[in-house]
């Protein structure tokens, strides 16, 4: 076992919680299950690593980097919520875009990427749910690929969606170009959507969550047994509450919505405060950056509107999160320079 293989194996053993390590090793299949059962997973990670290493060496006489990377991928595919995932969008599909199949994609992608950069190691694995997982370790002319900081890419074949984890700006154009060519598209761009949970941002983009749609008729009020103290006031309050809830659900979904953590707005609009002549007459924008964050942003915003902490109707700026499937926006005034008060979102 060479030095890099050893280090990557050590990393994986350290990273995976002891309770899950047995399962991950079993799925990997390089060590017989019988021997795994004899391992003591309650010892320190240092001892555990030595045990796993010696087991690997006994069983497969040439354990290579490839095998260890596969182990890392197995764990990562099972637990993708470890950092920030960014969504990207493939655009301008070719006519034969639907004919792309896995083997062809694999070959094409690897070939294209190695044409662009000499020292790179790519590993592709197909997951049960039709997603293709790609692990890329980057190097350059003078350095071997850095196996400790790999980039992960998840792509569902025949869809325009790509999810990227841990990609530096330096490698971005290379990856984009290789993906565009391998999937037969014209270009690829950032969707301005990011989050910690891969499944959430995927469901969010594909809109697979419960949505509410505007209706002409309010939903029937629940029948109440208790006699209201003042029926008219109660009715009015209930109606307003119902309306706020309906609007909140239309804007942010209801029930079990995908988990997003942040939404960022870069405001480059003119000052809009009240009663400040000096700034209202100023031509230049009032530059500010607003960041909303929560453990579950859509639920928080929904609550914010339905509880009356925000005015209804919901501003297009906030409802754009679900409507456009983005959580990063740049906001400017329509036609900069004129006195129009409406805002536009830059593409």
């Amino acid at each position: 076992m060479d030095e890099t293989t050893r280090t990557v194996l050590q990393r994986v053993v350290r990273k995976v919680p002891a309770t899950r390590l047995r399962e991950v090793l079993r799925t990997w299949g390089r060590v017989p299950a019988r021997q795994l059962d004899l391992l003591d997973f309650s010892t320190s990670k240092f001892v555990l690593f030595e045990d796993v290493r010696s087991l690997c060496e006994v069983n497969s006489n040439r354990l290579t980097l490839k095998h260890v990377c596969e182990l890392e991928m197995i764990y990562f595919i099972g637990n993708p919520a470890q950092g920030v995932w960014r969504a990207c969008h493939l655009t301008e599909p070719d006519d034969d875009v639907m004919t792309v199949e896995l083997r062809q994609f694999k070959e094409q992608f690897k070939a294209r990427l190695t044409e662009l950069i000499s020292n790179v190691s790519v590993k592709i694995k197909k997951h049960d749910d039709e997603a293709v997982w790609i692990r890329i370790a980057w190097g350059d002319h003078f350095h071997r690929p850095n196996q400790l900081k790999p980039t992960y890419v998840v792509h569902h074949l025949q869809t325009p969606y790509v999810f990227v984890y841990n990609l530096s700006t330096k490698h971005k154009p290379l990856l984009y170009q290789a993906l565009v060519l391998a999937t037969r598209h014209g270009s690829m761009k950032d969707s301005h959507l990011s989050g910690k949970s891969l499944t959430s941002i995927r469901d969010f983009l594909m809109r697979s969550y419960q949505q509410a749609f505007p209706t002409k008729y309010a939903r029937p009020l629940q029948e109440k047994n208790t006699a209201p103290t003042n029926p008219n006031i109660e009715k009015e309050h209930a109606e307003q509450e119902e309306k706020r809830l309906q609007l909140a659900c239309e804007a942010f979904g209801e029930g079990n919505v995908p988990r997003l953590e942040t939404a960022t707005y870069k405001l480059e609009t003119r000052y809009r405060g009240s009663g400040n002549e000096t700034l209202n007459n100023r031509e230049e924008p009032f530059r500010a950056l607003i960041k909303f964050s929560s453990a579950n942003l859509l639920v928080s915003l929904n609550h914010c509107v339905s509880a009356g902490m925000a005015e209804t109707p919901v501003t297009p700026l906030l409802s754009s999160i679900t409507q456009k499937g983005k959580n990063y926006f740049v906001i400017t005034d329509k036609g900069s320079g004129n006195s129009s008060q409406s805002m536009v979102q830059k593409k």
Partner: peptide, 14 residues
């Protein structure tokens, strides 16, 4: 903001 879960709003001005 006292929503469930709490909503943090950070406002950075030039």
């Amino acid at each position: 903001l006292p929503t469930q879960p709490p909503l943090d709003v950070s406002y950075t001005v030039n």
